[in-house]
Nucleic acid binder design. Structure first.
Lengths: 340, 340
DNA sequence: GTTTTACGAACAAACGTTTGCGCATACAAT
DNA sequence: ATTGTATGCGCAAACGTTTGTTCGTAAAAC
């Protein structure tokens, strides 16, 4: 009794068997026809003893851990921090707990994390895969682990995902630039093989081609500040600088700004900038960045919902969900089209 | 064998007892004089079977969960996201796992989280307490849970903490303003009863008084953007506006900027701004904000170290660690003192 | 007066580990 | 021969739950 009280202590003190106590505490009292009186007694002694069930024993017995894992490329990136925050709170509502793993945008780390976390008998996993490998994820799913990708995902697999409609987002951002008279546009992309990136490139190019723009470029290879910085530096070397840059993530945009500042290029007067991802800080940057805002909160909520319909109701059919993005006009795109 | 292999499967396949397998797998082979040959066999069958220990069974048996909890006020705040990230990776190095809880800066949530997470048989906890209550934390510690506060803490308790030297940080920021000729200075504080805030206020006032400045004010009551916004709005209403504002956190600073922008007050030309906390985005704000940078990474690393010296070596003596902050001069403070 | 039905609760096994002892065997020392 | 001492390994209990099955008893039905 000194240590944490267990179900046995309650049973002894209340004068009932362990079985009965367990059933009452698990809300299965009615199912097993346990009298109200008994329920009362057991409940109050549990209360009195300040009983907290030992999850390990429970999980060992049931095989369920009431735990899911969330793996993101980097918690330091506010975009993923928000995801972590939302997923965490959503999962709590089911009385489950979230284990957060950080792959540091490295596929080997991701695999290690997946393995490491698996030893915790996960009931499910939400992942923002960092690379273009999915074998380890498929294997996980084949073992029966409910799994869902968010933000980044893979096409043509039986792997559920929830993400933004990246094609449409990129298309509308590009259209927006074109409508503002830009005819020489560069986009700085992220990880090349990632589906969101591929979709964004497609949206970008379709918008260009559809509007008869021929002077466009696609460069870059990482969703990182460094990539944004380097590519912008290079773009500024060109004899004919683009009039607008489309950054494929907020991190890339940060890099762009750093480079533009260094080179003393005024935004939007000399070069316009538009970016994917919204975040509070974007409002405090000068100028506030016009962006394609992703419905992060909705993405997370839907993902959690799908995950739990898989965990709880064994609905294993893969779901492919794309959510509309939103163009948020701020002040980083100049209107070159004075006819308008 | 279809399902996850366990230690029994290995024992059968290798032709040894469960005991021996367990000992080999736990690196206690030598201690129990198990022959190299046997070790080899067991190791390779474990490998072959792709064995991953069931942490629940292990934890049930040992009473240790190899899990610690981290509770922060808000994961969405980049300051705490960074803490989460660093703590997470540091803890992993010990082969432990981190459960992250979000109190949403609400003391009731914090208590709930503490309770909820406790059922997971935590081996330790790191917390950024959100309020001025510590009873629930003391109780936790009395139950034998290794516990340590970071960033925010309480004085006069047997509760370990690692934080910045807030007094010195605030003092040097204030001194910096004074040295740049400011004589009318407002500071916008955070949660009033929190020790860091109290220390910062003290540092601020000591600097003011020490330099004979009489025209200073201390306002505000939360580490939030809203607080920064509202207080700045109010400050701007005064007939005699301060020439400099000292924001006590990056979130407060964001609010200040928002208000200053709205009122079209130029920083630093019309009002100078200095803030606590550094973060990458601060560099992209116009102007880049001069700030008191906290050694977040070091704080986390030291906290984790202390926590594990408690967990592993049962060193329960409370540790009180304050780390030096660093003044990072950027461009948001104007030098009014032309004599310099 | 016997059988049925409903009710209320308990037995005991199982989940996968770890670990304090104990048990052989073999060889050396007495 | 007996004792001593390494060496190499296994028995079985324990951790705290959950749960399929069983077991009384009392009231209801025949």
């Amino acid at each position: 009794m000194q240590q944490r009280p267990n179900i046995v202590d309650i049973a002894e003190k209340a004068g009932f068997s362990i079985t009965t106590v367990s059933r009452v505490l698990n809300g299965k009292a009615d199912k097993y026809r346990i009298s109200k009186a008994t329920q009362q007694v057991i409940m109050s002694t549990a209360e009195e003893l300040n009983y907290v069930p030992n999850e390990f024993a429970r999980n060992l017995r049931t095989g369920k851990s009431k735990t899911i894992a969330l793996i993101v490329p980097s918690l330091k990136n506010p975009f993923f921090a928000e995801i972590a925050s939302v997923v965490n709170t959503e999962v709590r509502k089911y009385n489950y707990i979230t284990l957060i793993g950080d792959s540091d945008d490295n596929i080997e780390n991701e695999k290690t994390e997946v393995l490491h976390l698996s030893s915790r008998n996960l009931d499910g996993m939400i992942i923002v895969p960092c690379g273009d490998e999915w074998g380890h994820l498929e294997r996980l799913q084949e073992k029966g682990l409910p799994l869902i990708c968010i933000d980044r995902y893979f096409e043509g697999l039986d792997l559920s995902f929830v993400s933004s409609d990246n094609y449409e987002g990129a298309y509308s951002a590009s259209k927006y630039l074109i409508e503002h008279g830009h005819t020489s546009i560069a986009c700085i992309q992220g990880v090349r093989h990632s589906t969101p990136n591929i979709q964004r490139v497609k949206g970008f190019i379709d918008a260009m081609v559809g509007s008869g723009i021929t002077s466009y470029t696609v460069t870059g290879d990482a969703f990182s500040e460094q990539n944004g910085y380097l590519e912008t530096k290079l773009l500024l070397q060109q004899k004919a600088r683009p009039t607008a840059i489309f950054a494929f993530s907020n991190t890339i945009a940060m890099g762009c700004i750093k480079a533009l500042k260094e080179e003393k290029v005024k935004v939007p007067d000399e070069i316009s900038l538009i970016t994917f991802d919204d975040n509070p800080y974007l409002n405090y940057i000068e100028p506030p960045l016009t962006c394609i805002s992703q419905p992060v909160e909705d993405i997370c909520k839907i993902a959690v919902k799908i995950l739990f319909s898989n965990i709880l109701e064994h609905d294993v059919s893969p779901k492919y969900v794309l959510l509309k993005t939103q163009l948020k006009v701020k002040a980083s795109v100049k209107n070159l089209d004075h006819v308008l």
